[in-house]
Design a protein around this nucleic acid. Structure first.
Lengths: 112, 112
DNA sequence: AATATATACATAATTTTCTTATGCATAAGA
DNA sequence: TCTTATGCATAAGAAAATTATGTATATATT
């Protein structure tokens, strides 16, 4: 709690970015990766993650590949070609947004 | 368009921050200020701004002062004492969020 | 003089996006 | 045996925005 409600709107872009650099990932793995990368500050809930993955897939940005590991199901997601193109756009947009926020909130921070 | 939907959740903090540094501002002025500070990248819509101001006021974080300039109404908002304290907290939280996002999206960026 | 744009507020309907609460199932650790 | 971790999913509800209106005055443009 506390950090809750703070990353609204950027979850999709985070997913795309991670898939772009990791190649393929499954849902649970994404939640753990984000937790690790942000030292526990950002926690992606399953209720937000799975619908987001399904939507990105429906939009044709992700492909799914089923796998069974230790008798447990995994759904590996990876970017489609369209997904890779979209990732570039959305990442640029998110970076611009972060710079703007940074500049608004603390103009003293370096902007590089 | 484009930048739309990106600053979700942080509008309240932006308002508090601006009021903290400007002393007092009225709604329309806030929209123009944000537009200017972000070179047009962040546009606060009235449908988001006015309800947010009313809510912050209802929470006891803002005080209102009416003014009539050129026969047009203005509602100047300023931080209450509670508002000043809350601003410190919310700003810190938002800064942490920005750092996390920055680190997720582009770990090469400087973290200062 | 007429018209459009800027200034200034406000709210209702809708949509998006999240949290919270469930639910199912297997594996591993205490 | 019981709890925690792994792994998926969806439904109900809340939060926070967008979009679409509405009112009104002032200024700039044609």
């Amino acid at each position: 709690m506390g950090n809750a409600k703070l990353y609204k709107g950027s979850l999709n872009t985070i997913i795309l970015k991670l898939l772009d650099e990791q190649g393929k990932m499954y849902g649970y793995e994404i939640t753990q990766k984000v937790k690790a990368l942000t030292k526990g500050e950002l926690k992606i809930t399953e209720g937000a993650l799975y619908p987001a993955l399904h939507k990105l897939e429906a939009e044709g940005l992700l492909d799914v590949e089923l796998a069974k590991v230790d008798n447990r199901l995994r759904k590996y997601y990876k970017l489609t070609e369209a997904g890779e193109k979209e990732t570039v756009n959305r990442l640029a947009e998110l970076e611009e947004f972060i710079r703007s926020m940074q500049n608004l909130v603390n103009p003293n921070w370096s902007i590089n």
